[in-house]
Computed example of a mutant assay.
Amino acid sequence: MSSDEILLKELKILFVEDEVNISKLLKDALADYFFSFTVANNGEEGLDKFKKVNPDIVITDIMMPKLDGLEMTKKIKEINEEIPIIVLSAFSDKEKLLKAIDIGITKYFIKPFDPEEVLEYLTFLAKKLNKHRIICLNKHFSFDNNTKNLFEDDTFVNITKREKQFISLLVENKKDIVTAKLIKTKLWPGEDVTDERLRTFIKRLRAKTAKELIKNIPGQGYLISPNDI
């Protein structure tokens, strides 16, 4: 398997298209390249599946029943402003296509399109997304935002699922201080967690990593390498 194929295999694609023949054409041509390839038949179903699947890339038609591609794109962008969205458009949809560009689509293909061209562009996107998924926490530690794996100088660090959730929470908030209350709510939902238990949890994580990785702001909460992210 080539490096490009490996990158594609990590991606989840959502394809929203009401024309069954086009939907089948693209799925048959591309689905095997990806981790998952989810199909929706209209904008409402597309939005619902977007929330459930949390795809890396969305491919959508413009003209669809119930909720058209433009309205769906607007709603998706409200949830995730950075999500790449590729539009498939008939040439007669030129005015709508201009509106799609205004609301932040990443790329468009005019029907009839070549699935190979779409795959080529998805490979290009995969490389861009891969650059954004590895976050340097400091000069020694990095965090894969997709797999939630932690690395020290490119060596895998074996941490627990809850420790991954904790680092991910700090990374999501970047330079904002994350309060002890929020950490407890996210990591131990429904449990009554003491401050001592939280401190012990963080102490164990520091023992596996480095004391300076998790910064304690007395009386406020925690940060992760705030000067480096």
Rank of each mutant, 00 (worst) to 15 (best):
M1V: 14
S2Y: 13
D4L: 11
E5K: 15
L7I: 04
E10A: 11
D18M: 11
N21A: 14
A31H: 10
A31M: 09
D32N: 15
Y33M: 01
F37G: 05
V39K: 01
V39F: 05
A40F: 08
N42H: 12
G43C: 05
E44K: 03
E44N: 00
E44C: 00
D48E: 12
K51F: 03
K52D: 15
N54R: 11
I57A: 05
V58I: 11
V58K: 07
V58W: 04
P65M: 06
D68R: 00
L70A: 11
T73D: 03
T73P: 02
K74Q: 15
K77V: 04
I79W: 07
I79E: 14
N80C: 12
E82Y: 13
I85M: 09
I86K: 01
I86M: 06
V87G: 00
F91A: 14
D93P: 05
E95D: 13
L97Q: 02
I101T: 08
G104V: 04
I105S: 00
T106G: 08
K111L: 14
P112T: 14
D114E: 12
P115Q: 03
L119F: 01
L119S: 01
L122Q: 01
F124H: 11
L125D: 01
N130K: 11
L137P: 06
H140G: 08
H140Y: 13
D144P: 07
D144W: 02
N146W: 01
T147G: 04
N149R: 11
N149L: 14
L150Q: 07
E152A: 13
D154P: 08
T155D: 10
T155M: 09
T155C: 09
V157Y: 00
R162H: 05
I167G: 00
L169M: 11
K174A: 15
D176N: 10
V178P: 10
V178I: 11
V178R: 10
T179S: 15
T179N: 07
A180R: 13
K181R: 15
L187H: 08
W188Y: 15
E191T: 06
D192W: 07
D192P: 02
V193I: 15
L198R: 00
F201Q: 02
R204K: 12
L205F: 13
L205A: 14
A210Q: 12
A210V: 05
E212V: 03
I214W: 00
K215D: 09
K215C: 12
I217Q: 01
P218R: 07
P218Q: 08
Q220K: 09
G221H: 08
Y222M: 04
L223C: 05
L223P: 04
P226V: 00
N227H: 10
